[in-house]
Design a protein around this nucleic acid. Structure first.
Lengths: 141, 141
DNA sequence: ATGCAAATGCAAATCGTTTGCAGTTATCAC
DNA sequence: GTGATAACTGCAAACGATTTGCATTTGCAT
């Protein structure tokens, strides 16, 4: 049972986050949901504006902040440049960034996570979250 | 011959980096060398200004950039906030950031590095560099 | 429908960082 | 040393990314 769907329940996500369901927010959530990679605020704004020209960049930023705080999305800062966003998945994953194309590949490793926890514990800490980014180049074969 | 010293050979470091040995740079290098943690540009500037009030923030940034490019120092971007710097060590290390105090603890794990390389290889990549940051809280015991 | 807090757009403000320019300085050839 | 020259500096203005003040619009509970 439960709702099927090719596009998520944005109303519900906003409700859960304690946010009102507004047109800009629904549009932004859908853009993020359908996004190929990890778009930055400018890219999201560009797509949003194409759907509703009244949407402002400030609203994009405000929405990203609210959604980030509610845990609905995640903010990343790869290398320099602007922050990039993605909808929060169930389960954590890390990133491999292609230095030549900027492409971002996601991966996870239970082994690494386990070792991390072990290291933190040895130092007297418990991990709240972590960030692992591999920057690499395609091996030409 | 050869200057003794408890503080490193800043002249030499600059020479190697292909940079002129100037007072601002020597001061900045010494500040970084003696720094407890991972200071940001503002903190470095503050200390530098205390030694020579003519030093400007722009020079701090320019020096950090030049030294970073020459490999003498490393730039980090923990969480949000400004970039933080540290002198390049021999050998790589990762960071555990104390969420309550901002303190940065360094560590390394050959096991993690090995797994990283393995994962990258499986995805068709070779790692150029990586970033691993654990954000945690002290376990109160 | 009505009211009010929440959300929006716009423009101005802020933060961290970079840059243009005119004046200073380190280093190199004599 | 002396001078030439490119590197370096300080300053202030420019910059890109993000945030914010304020007047207006909107969602949503009544």
């Amino acid at each position: 049972m439960g709702a099927p769907s090719k596009h998520a329940d944005y109303e519900g996500m906003l409700r859960v986050a304690g946010l009102r369901s507004t047109k800009p927010r629904r549009i932004i959530l859908e853009i993020l949901h359908n996004a190929e990679g990890h778009p930055d605020a400018a890219a999201i704004f560009e797509q949003a504006a194409a759907r509703d020209s009244r949407i402002s960049l400030a609203t994009v930023y405000r929405t990203m902040k609210a959604l980030e705080e509610s845990g609905a999305i995640q903010r990343h800062a790869f290398g320099h440049g602007p922050a990039r966003f993605e909808q929060a998945h169930v389960g954590h994953h890390d990133h491999l960034i292609d230095l030549d194309t900027g492409e971002v590949i996601e991966f996870t490793s239970a082994r690494i996570e386990a070792i991390q926890a072990e290291i933190a514990a040895r130092l007297g800490y418990e991990i709240v979250h972590h960030r692992l980014e591999l920057y690499g180049r395609r091996i030409k074969g």
